[in-house]
Amino acid sequence: MTGSFERISGDRPLPSRLRGGVVAIGNFDGVHRGHLAVLQRALDEAQGRGVPALVLTFQPHPRKVFRPEAPLFVLTPPVMKARLLHELGFDAVVEQAFSREFAARSAETFITDILVDMLGIGCTVTGVDFHFGKDRQGGPAFLMAAGERYGFGVTLVDAFRDEGAEVVSSSRIRTLLESGRPEEAAGLLGYRFTVESEVIGGQKLGRTLGFPTANMKLAPETALKEGIYAVRFRRADGTLHDGVASFGRRPTVDDNGAPLLETFLFDFSGDLYGEVCRVSLFGYLRGEEKFDGLDALVEQMKRDEAEARALLAGVRPLSDLDARIAF
């Protein structure tokens, strides 16, 4: 990422240079093509007004607050969401702490305390289904009326539909990733699904077999289909490597049950421990298998490498954002 960008906690004062801007509001989990319709409108509006472009989002995801017993596969944790928003051209993301107490605020209080006093907004851009305040009492009509009272603009964006006339949603993308269809998920996201984590030590079995891997723990609720993927791996210094990755749960290695992503980088040797790196998924090659001995495993790994190299040799960016994230 380049240029000035800020991640701002909702309990911090907004820098004066960011007040009066255009603010896109939403959870934006996935920052998918449906979200991009709202986000691009906000960027265009900000450019036309000559003011900063901001995103107001909520952390943690409201579903985690209201249904803590149901694990939620968050597509874009805060760091990745901020990275994507920065790449799109926003000046800042405001991460408002979300709790039952915050959700119990009236819609009017949300307007006055958050939009007017905290952000000093000049205009807000949201989807037509955006609701806020206690019992979701605030909706598009309420927001537009508030804009007239307090002197800020309101732009509402219709739900974005894909080429099959279906609404693009985070739940659809989760389902695709859970079923091993990252290529279709990328079509809805507009870029290759990407995870980010620190490289940690492992059992070093891959090294003894001639396939050393960079191991990354992902959040426990990460619900990718377990198996083998063709991937691109971006190091902390920005260098990019093709590779093949195995995703799964390894209780003997991982005492907290978090899924482990083990990536073999093609044509690379070196120490990656401690680096925070990114892995973008380009294709699902096969499910996990139990092999009859290490020789059979090594032969399959060689076939996986060949298949991944062939797949990655022909890929092209899906969008400008994909080009910046995975190419």
Rank of each mutant, 00 (worst) to 15 (best):
E95M: 10
L72G: 04
D129C: 02
L119F: 02
L84M: 11
I121H: 01
G122Y: 04
G120D: 06
D91G: 14
V125F: 00
A107G: 14
P68T: 12
V128R: 14
L85A: 04
L119C: 00
G127F: 05
I121L: 12
T112M: 09
F73W: 10
F132K: 07
A97E: 13
A97K: 07
F102P: 03
G120F: 03
E95G: 00
M118A: 14
G89Q: 06
L85H: 01
F132P: 01
P78S: 11
A107P: 06
F90S: 02
L119A: 02
L88I: 06
V74D: 06
V128H: 14
K134W: 10
F130I: 09
D117T: 13
M118S: 11
R100T: 12
P71H: 12
H131Q: 15
A92R: 07
A70R: 15
H131P: 01
V125R: 00
D113H: 03
T109N: 12
R100Y: 05
P71Q: 07
R136L: 08
D135R: 14
V79H: 15
F132N: 06
H131E: 14
L115T: 08
D91P: 01
F130V: 02
V125M: 00
D129Y: 08
P68E: 11
I121K: 04
A92E: 04
S106E: 14
T124D: 07
A103T: 03
D135M: 07
D91L: 01
V128T: 15
C123Q: 11
D129W: 10
D135P: 04
T126L: 01
K134N: 11
I111P: 03
A97I: 00
L88V: 05
V116C: 07
F90V: 03
Q96C: 01
V93I: 14
A92Q: 07
P78I: 05
I114S: 02
F110S: 06
R83W: 10
V79A: 15
D135L: 10
A82C: 12
S106Q: 11
A82Q: 08
V125P: 04
V116G: 00
R105W: 05
E108N: 11
P71G: 13
D129T: 08
H86P: 01
G89V: 07
P68N: 12
L115C: 04
L84F: 13
A97H: 12
A107R: 13
F130N: 06
V128W: 11
F130Q: 09
L85I: 05
T76W: 08
A70K: 15
G120M: 03
F90P: 04
L84G: 05
R100S: 09
L84S: 08
F90H: 06
V116H: 09
D91F: 02
A97N: 06
L72V: 13
D135F: 09
L72E: 08
S106C: 02
F73S: 09
P78M: 09
A107M: 10
F110Y: 15
L85Y: 04
F110L: 08
S99I: 02
F90A: 02
Q96N: 05
R105M: 11
E69L: 11
V93S: 04
F98I: 07
D135G: 09
T109Y: 00
F90Y: 10
E87V: 12
L75W: 12
F132L: 08
T126N: 02
E108K: 10
A82V: 07
L72Q: 11
V93H: 07
E69P: 01
M118H: 15
A92K: 05
H131M: 11
R105T: 02
S106R: 13
E95W: 09
H131Y: 06
M80I: 15
V74Y: 10
D91A: 11
H131S: 14
